[in-house]
Design a protein around this nucleic acid. Structure first.
Length: 271
DNA sequence: GTATATGTTGTGGA
DNA sequence: ATCCACAACATATA
């Protein structure tokens, strides 16, 4: 699930549940795979400390602590968060659990274990190290123009490049290209300034809409392409068949692979 | 058993 | 230096 809107939703959830609670202990199920620092160091750093705030850059989440350390979290393809008190409520696939002194717990849940947890000196240091660009949510036309300059790759592939538009993932890339009516395989250097401007607007619009709906796809506007994806649950009022057609022109939505990623598009509207 | 999956990173070749 | 295709990671769901 986790593209930018999900991570932003997680961030707000953590703000509402897990700040200013002294940490008693931390457990990580598979530290070799999912923890990028030594488990003992991680525990020593966090025991007795507390989270005081959060930050997000693209799909990367940061938990700030009172003592200054910054916990980094990336949710991979299946990461989620949970807050609960009783052992019996531990979610299936809880891969890391932060135990607070008041008895509550925060879990990093991740069935496929592609997610990563680590420590950073600061948000800025981590951002530089990972070469993350300006967050997609507030990406300006100028920044996007610069990111795409002199690039010949398919526009969709570049939208997925976290150095250019951090936070855009596979379904968002398809959605913004559909909303901007641009063909996913267009070479980036073939885009006219007016098209890049349209694209930048679509990125912001789609992300804001998704965040407002707390990343619950079935609540997205009916003119969104996302409803054509197989894993979208049909809104009660529509038939499954309706999903396969373009909400703008009723043409059959096509699926193909671009840059190795499943790509949905309308062959009529997107040029 | 088969196919697919929301992400990232590394490798090898052009 | 760029770009691309592809594999790998580990596991669930349809």
């Amino acid at each position: 699930m986790p593209e930018l809107p999900e991570v932003e939703t997680y961030r707000r959830f953590i703000d509402e549940t897990s700040l200013y609670l002294p940490i008693a202990e931390v457990d990580v199920q598979d530290p070799k795979r999912q923890l990028t620092v030594d488990l003992d160091d991680f525990r020593k750093t966090l025991r007795g400390d507390q989270f005081t705030g959060t930050h997000r850059v693209g799909k990367q989440l940061f938990l700030l602590t009172a003592k200054g350390a910054v916990v980094t979290m990336h949710f991979g393809m299946t990461g989620d968060v949970a807050f609960y008190r009783d052992e019996a409520d531990t979610p299936r696939f809880a891969r890391a659990v932060f135990y607070f002194e008041n008895g509550f717990r925060f879990a990093f849940v991740d069935s496929r274990k592609f997610g990563r947890i680590g420590l950073a000196k600061s948000v800025e240091a981590f951002r530089l190290q990972k070469k993350l660009g300006p967050d997609a949510l507030t990406l300006s036309t100028e920044e996007l123009t610069q990111g795409l300059a002199k690039k010949k790759s398919a526009i969709k592939s570049l939208l997925l490049d976290q150095r250019i538009a951090p936070g855009v993932g596979n379904w968002i890339a398809d959605e913004v290209l559909f909303q901007a009516q641009l063909e996913p395989e267009r070479p980036a250097d073939s885009l006219q300034p007016v098209e890049i401007d349209r694209l930048a607007s679509s990125i912001r619009e789609v992300l804001e809409t998704a965040i407002a709906a707390e990343a619950i796809y079935r609540d997205f506007p009916s003119h969104y392409l996302i409803h054509a994806r197989e894993w979208d649950e049909a809104p009660a009022s529509t038939t499954k068949d309706a999903h396969l057609h373009c909400p703008r022109c009723q043409t059959l939505i096509q699926k193909k692979y671009v840059g190795g990623r499943a790509t949905y598009f309308c062959p009529n509207c997107q040029v």
